[in-house]
Design a protein around this nucleic acid. Structure first.
Length: 201
DNA sequence: AAGCTTAGCAACCGCCTCCCA
DNA sequence: CTGGGAGGCGGTTGCTAAGCT
């Protein structure tokens, strides 16, 4: 079905592809009883022919009880756009600001909906700078800086100020004024517990 | 109605980081 | 200090459903 993986060399005959209802049920039942614990040993203990990574992904993205499925609201869309402008493709951090949403879901939504939306508004989705020219989705638009006069400076990672009126965004990006103290509801371990992002722009 | 194209999304892959012995 | 194992992350793939001709 999918490409053979080199990283399953120790996994024996692991199943790949879409999850069945029975597999989902086994995973949910096991985690309800025993908690998440060690993902590597979980599949065997739960009676699943999956690798630990696959189980983790399935649980995190679809089976967790606190997930909010369904369409993104306008406020969520707006928040994702603003967070992406600040954080880039740090999907897990963005997901941390959207309770009930997963990084994978946000990433997919960005790539399929929001990217296109920004392009139609004439905004480069990669750097959130206002582009000009026609924003035809099929052609790669040419982007130009809004406020940087120095052409040599185009690769600099300074934040470019886009006019909110021109860009169609509800607020100019550097004035987002978001409190980006990351309270991560789903991060386990101590990796990000103290992580805070101060908005410096 | 059938075939083709495109969009959406679930899932995989490989790399990176952290932890621990 | 170092190396291996495990978890986590972002990029990418490929299946499927919807829309179009």
């Amino acid at each position: 079905m999918r490409k053979a993986s080199g990283h399953n060399k120790k996994e024996g005959a692991v199943k790949k592809g879409a999850w069945s209802k029975q597999e989902d049920q086994k995973l949910v039942d096991y985690i309800r009883k025993h908690g998440q614990g060690c993902w590597r040993s979980l599949p065997r203990a739960a009676g699943l022919l999956r690798c630990g990574k696959s189980c983790r992904l399935r649980w995190m993205n679809y089976l967790r009880p606190d997930l909010k499925r369904g369409n993104f609201g306008d406020d969520e869309e707006d928040l994702i756009i603003k967070l992406h402008a600040l954080l880039g493709n740090r999907w897990s951090l963005i997901a941390g600001r959207l309770p009930g949403r997963t990084d994978n879901e946000i990433k997919n939504y960005w790539n399929t909906h929001l990217r296109r939306k920004l392009i139609q508004r004439g905004i480069d989705p990669d750097n959130h700078r206002l582009g000009c020219h026609t924003a035809g989705p099929s052609n790669l638009p040419k982007w130009e800086l809004v406020s940087h006069g120095d052409e040599e400076d185009q690769e600099a990672d300074s934040v470019t100020v886009c006019s909110s009126e021109a860009s169609g965004l509800s607020a100019p990006l550097p004035d987002l004024n978001l409190d980006l103290t990351i309270g991560l509801p789903f991060v386990s371990g101590n990796k990000f517990h103290a992580e805070q992002i101060q908005l410096g722009c």
